[in-house]
Computed example of a mutant assay.
Amino acid sequence: MIVRMLDYMGVETNVKSKVELADISQISEYAQAAVQYLAAHDVLVSGAETKFNPKKNLKRAEMAKVLMRSLRISDWY
């Protein structure tokens, strides 16, 4: 959803560099490119640099960080 928001804002969201995530196989195939993009731009908050933790719920503060970091990528912030 964050990458779709960035697309709507006119941000180019093509994955240029991949981040090695230990749990990439647990991420649905359709979402892997979006996760790679957000991980490469330091948007994701997971507690560990090499894990996405797709089964974990975000806390309110973590989601706020994700939104603020996403907005910094765009010209909207």
Score class of each variant (00 low, 15 high):
Met1Arg: 02
Ile2Lys: 14
Ile2Cys: 11
Val3Ile: 01
Arg4Asp: 10
Arg4Tyr: 03
Arg4Trp: 03
Arg4Lys: 08
Met5Ser: 08
Met5Tyr: 03
Leu6Val: 11
Asp7Phe: 00
Asp7Ile: 03
Asp7His: 09
Asp7Cys: 08
Met9Arg: 10
Met9Asn: 12
Gly10Lys: 05
Val11Trp: 02
Glu12Val: 05
Thr13Asp: 13
Thr13Tyr: 02
Asn14Glu: 13
Lys16Arg: 14
Ser17Pro: 09
Ser17Leu: 04
Lys18Asn: 10
Val19Trp: 12
Val19Cys: 13
Val19Asn: 15
Glu20Asp: 07
Glu20Cys: 01
Leu21Ala: 12
Ala22Glu: 14
Asp23Lys: 00
Ile24Lys: 05
Ser25Pro: 10
Ser25Leu: 11
Ser25Glu: 14
Gln26Gly: 04
Ile27Met: 11
Ser28Gly: 15
Ala31Ser: 15
Ala31Trp: 11
Ala31Lys: 12
Ala31Glu: 14
Gln32Asn: 02
Gln32Trp: 10
Ala33Lys: 11
Val35Arg: 08
Val35Phe: 07
Gln36Glu: 13
Gln36Asn: 10
Tyr37Ile: 00
Ala39Ser: 14
Ala40Arg: 01
Ala40Val: 02
Val43Pro: 07
Val45Tyr: 00
Val45Ser: 06
Val45Ile: 05
Ser46Thr: 02
Gly47Trp: 05
Gly47Arg: 06
Glu49Trp: 07
Glu49Gly: 15
Glu49Tyr: 14
Glu49Leu: 05
Thr50Gln: 13
Thr50Asp: 15
Thr50Arg: 14
Thr50Tyr: 13
Pro54Ser: 08
Pro54Arg: 12
Lys55Phe: 10
Lys56Glu: 11
Leu58Ile: 07
Lys59Tyr: 09
Ala61Phe: 08
Ala61Asp: 07
Glu62Gln: 08
Glu62Asp: 10
Met63Pro: 07
Ala64Gln: 03
Lys65Ile: 09
Val66Met: 11
Val66His: 10
Leu67Thr: 06
Leu67Met: 06
Arg69Ile: 00
Ser70Ile: 01
Ser70Gln: 01
Ser70His: 01
Leu71Phe: 01
Arg72Leu: 15
Ile73Ser: 13
Ile73Leu: 14
Ile73Gly: 06
Ile73His: 15
Ile73Pro: 10
Ser74His: 08
Asp75Ser: 00
